[in-house]
């Protein structure tokens, strides 16, 4: 499949295709072959690229890749397609934290005007004798908390709604 990396605020689409014993690199309408990485352990390897051999040092931190090649350091981020599409979705439409099931509010941790980051705890709610945490689906400023402690709500109800961050 086509993969994408971010590097210096640019996005590069590329993919590998298998060669005889190595790979071919495709990007920007170019094909570079062969490419191969050998002896890579402890963050060090030899990159073969079109009959040139280059020493590479690297460190991988999740989707972020730190590379040292030809005396220079480069930081790339692997852009997982599914997550990027999901993120755009979250940013585009999730203006509310919704109730995944009916329940009763146990505690409210935010109030109107609070700036929250994605994943912040908004409420504790109880449902079917289980307590669970309602988290912010996106970052933003709390616009309204729709239920107070002790109030009950239905599945799908908007519990907390957000507005865009204050300028």
């Amino acid at each position: 499949m086509r993969h994408s990396f971010a590097l210096n605020a640019e996005s590069y689409e590329l993919w590998l295709s298998p060669g005889q014993r190595d790979y071919r690199l495709h990007f920007g309408g170019e094909v570079i072959a062969p490419v191969a990485l050998s002896h890579h352990f402890n963050g060090s390897g030899m990159l073969e690229i079109a009959s040139e051999t280059v020493s590479v040092r690297f460190a991988i931190d999740g989707d972020v890749l730190h590379l040292h090649i030809h005396g220079r350091t480069h930081i790339l981020r692997y852009r997982d397609q599914l997550r990027e599409f999901d993120l755009s979705e979250v940013l585009a439409s999730h203006d509310a934290a919704q109730a995944p099931m009916p329940g009763v509010v146990v505690a409210v941790r935010v109030s109107r005007g609070d700036a929250v980051s994605p994943g912040a705890t908004l409420m504790l709610v109880e449902s079917m004798k289980l307590e669970f945490v309602v988290r912010a689906p996106r970052g933003g400023v709390v616009d309204r908390v729709h239920f107070e402690v002790g109030e009950s709500f239905e599945q799908g109800a908007a519990l907390v709604t957000f507005s865009d961050e204050r300028r």
């Binding site: 993969h3 590329l14 590998l16 690199l25 570079i32 990485l37 079109a50």
Partner: peptide
């Protein structure tokens, strides 16, 4: 800073070090 002529090597190393990229080539 400009990647300049190092760009292919950078992208090649990134591709080879990223499992999903290698996996999709290996799957063919």
């Amino acid at each position: 800073g400009q990647c300049g002529s190092d760009l292919p090597a950078i992208l090649a190393a990134a591709a080879l070090l990223t499992k999903p990229v290698r996996d999709s080539a290996d799957a063919v």
